[in-house]
């Protein structure tokens, strides 16, 4: 096989990587907001669950989490008599999302807390409800703060998708490993793989930079 013949299958794998990154980042984002805001809640149940989630998924290894969902979860179901085995792709996306969600939750929490206390006072004086204050006053001001760290998390997520190849999902890493097995041409295969990942990361980074600039427009208006 010639090196350029590697490209087609690897790009197909790369597309799977893109899809994985996309869905897990979005789902992870939802978890981030849910549990980041939940950690700030006055309701102690929400707070406890959020803290528990964040500590567990930040405090353990992503690969261990992924293997657990893929190998161990079905066994939990066996004990209680229901089928809890999930297809590899779900296990992969879920593990990635839960993991990035936990880190993202801390980012969300930190950004919300960074909104000056005076803003909350002004909102209270105008009689906004707590929910209105969160969604209309605090979050919009917190979002530009969140973007740089979120950007880093998204790129980290892209890299982490390579691990799903270990639970049999046919992403770029999986295809690369298979090609290496067939051709024994590891230098070429892995060099191409590295550069494809590199390229994807750069595109993602550029996209995120555009997004964060767009979100924080009101910040640059002025410059006092």
């Amino acid at each position: 096989m010639e090196w350029h013949q590697y490209l087609y299958p690897m790009l197909k794998g790369a597309w799977v990587t893109v899809e994985l990154t996309f869905f897990s980042t979005i789902l992870g984002g939802i978890f981030s907001f849910a549990f980041g805001i939940g950690k700030l809640s006055h309701n102690w149940i929400s707070k406890a669950i959020s803290i528990g989630y964040i500590e567990i998924f930040r405090g353990t290894s992503l690969l261990v989490q992924m293997f657990w969902l893929f190998y161990a979860l079905p066994l939990v179901g066996q004990q209680i008599g229901i089928n809890t085995s999930i297809p590899p792709i779900i296990a992969g996306v879920l593990a990635l999302s839960l993991n990035i969600g936990a880190y993202g939750a801390e980012v969300v929490r930190g950004a919300i807390q960074a909104v000056p206390k005076e803003q909350y006072e002004a909102a209270k004086a105008l009689n906004f409800t707590a929910r209105q204050t969160m969604w209309r006053i605090a979050l919009p001001q917190a979002l530009p703060e969140m973007m740089p760290p979120f950007g880093n998390l998204a790129i980290q997520n892209l890299k982490d998708t390579a691990l799903v190849s270990l639970i049999t999902i046919a992403d770029l890493a999986f295809i690369a490993e298979r090609l290496r097995n067939i051709t024994q041409d590891s230098p070429t295969v892995y060099t191409i793989a590295l550069f494809i990942y590199f390229g994807m990361a750069l595109v993602l980074a550029a996209g995120l930079k555009w997004l964060s600039r767009h979100l924080g427009n009101w910040r640059s208006a002025g410059g006092r």
Binding site: E118, Q119, A122, K124, A125, Q141, W218
Partner: peptide, 17 residues
């Protein structure tokens, strides 16, 4: 609360609006 209105020393306008 609706009966009172407050003007703050640091203005506290909403910067994103």
């Amino acid at each position: 609360r609706n009966r009172m209105g407050m003007v703050f020393q640091q203005f506290n306008l909403f910067p994103h609006m």
